[in-house]
Nucleic acid binder design. Structure first.
Lengths: 186, 186
DNA sequence: GTGAACTTTCAAAATCTTCTGAACGTTCAG
DNA sequence: CTGAACGTTCAGAAGATTTTGAAAGTTCAC
C-alpha cells in the first residue's frame, strides 16, 4: 500500500517536471523519464522505466536516446549486469547551459540570418518612404536579436547560475538600449 | 515587380519571427501576423492581413483575438471607416514582460504546487532510506523552482530590460546557491 | 556457432493541434 | 426594414507529432 503512495508521489513529480520540459519545447515523456531517474536511488534499466511510466519499450528507448543526446542522462555500466542502466544528470546548471547553447543559439542565428536577408532585399528595392520605414523596423528587430544573442553568449561564457543576482542586474538602467527597446512607430 | 520583392521581404521576416514565437510556445501564425502588422506603415484591417499571409478569415480572426489577449496587438479605430484596424505593440519590453508574467509565472506556480503535493505524500509514508532520499531530491527541485520564481518576480518588478548587464550578473558567484544547483547524488 | 536477453528502429496508428470555410452575429447606410 | 460589409465561431478537415508494437539488431554466455 505504501508502495503505491510512493508511486503516486513519483508520478506527480514526474508529470510536473514533464510540463516544465514540454514548456521548453521537448516532449513531455522526456521530462517524466528524467524525473523518475532523478528520484531513483540508483540507476534504472529501460524496463523499469517502462514499467513505472507505463510506456512502451520503444518509447523509453527513444526518450533515453534523446535525453543522452542532450547530456541530461548518462548510461552507466554495472559490473556483472548485462543490460544497461541509466541515471539522471543532477547538475541543473550543466543541463540548462547545454540546452540553451544548442537550442536558443541556433534559433537566434537563423532568425538573424533571415532578417538580414529580408533587409537586403528591401535595400535593393526603390527607396520609397514605406520601404525606408520598413528597413528601419527590421533593423530594430535585428538589434533585438543581436542583443539576445549576446545575452546568451555571456550567459554561457560565464558558466555561473546565480540567478538571484538578477534583481541587481535589472536595477541598472542603460537608457540607450532601453530606448531602442521601447521603439515607437515612427 | 518591386511590389513582389517587398512582399517577399515581408514574408521572410514574418516567418523568422514566427519561428521565434513558436519557440516560445505560441502558434507560428501569431508571430507572422504580428510581424506584418509591425512592419506595416499603418494599421491594417483583418482582410489585408488575410491576403498578405494567405490565411483564411477565420484564422486571422483567431490570431488577432489571441494577440490582443496578450496585449501585443491593439485594435484601432479609424474615423469614417466601418471596419476595425489593428496595429502591433512596438515596445518589446512590454510584450516580453507580459508574456513572462502570464505564462512562466503560472507554470512555475503549478509545478511548485505539484512538487509540494508529491513531497507531502512521501512525508506521510514510512520513512525508509529510499523515501527520505526522495524527499530530499524533491526538495532540490523545489528550491530550483523557488529560485526560478523569484528570478521571474524580480525581473518583472524591475521593469527594465537591459539584458546587456547579464554578464556582470553572471560573474558574481554565490557559492551557496551554486552548490545547491550542483547537487550530486547523495 | 546458437539462443536468450536486451535494445533500437521504424511504419502504421493514435492523438493532438491548427486551419478552413460556411454559417451566424452585428452594425450601419439607405 | 433590408442588405451589404465585416467579424466571429466552430465542426470537420488537414496536418503534425507522438506512441506503439513487432521485427531487426546487438551482445554475450555457453
Amino acid at each position: 500500500m505504501s508502495e503505491s503512495v510512493e508511486r503516486e508521489a513519483e508520478l506527480l513529480a514526474a508529470d510536473a517536471i514533464g510540463d516544465v520540459i514540454e514548456h521548453w519545447g521537448f516532449r513531455k515523456a522526456l521530462g517524466r523519464a528524467w524525473t523518475v531517474l532523478y528520484l531513483a536511488d540508483d540507476a534504472l534499466g529501460a524496463a523499469e522505466l517502462a514499467e513505472r511510466l507505463a510506456m512502451s519499450a520503444g518509447a523509453v528507448s527513444m526518450a533515453l536516446t534523446e535525453l543522452q543526446r542532450w547530456g541530461v542522462v548518462r548510461r552507466v555500466w554495472k559490473p556483472g549486469e548485462r543490460r544497461e542502466f541509466y541515471e539522471a544528470e543532477t547538475d541543473f546548471w550543466k543541463m540548462i547551459s547545454r540546452v540553451v547553447h544548442d537550442r536558443e543559439r541556433s534559433l537566434v542565428g537563423s532568425v538573424r540570418e533571415r532578417l538580414e536577408r529580408s533587409r537586403a532585399l528591401l535595400r535593393k528595392a526603390p527607396q520609397t518612404a514605406t520601404v525606408r520605414a520598413r528597413i528601419e523596423r527590421i533593423g530594430r528587430l535585428l538589434s533585438f536579436a543581436t542583443m539576445a544573442d549576446s545575452v546568451i553568449e555571456s550567459f554561457l561564457a560565464s558558466r555561473r547560475a546565480d540567478f538571484s543576482e538578477f534583481s541587481n542586474l535589472l536595477q541598472l538602467s542603460r537608457p540607450s538600449i532601453i530606448g531602442a527597446l521601447r521603439g515607437r512607430r515612427g
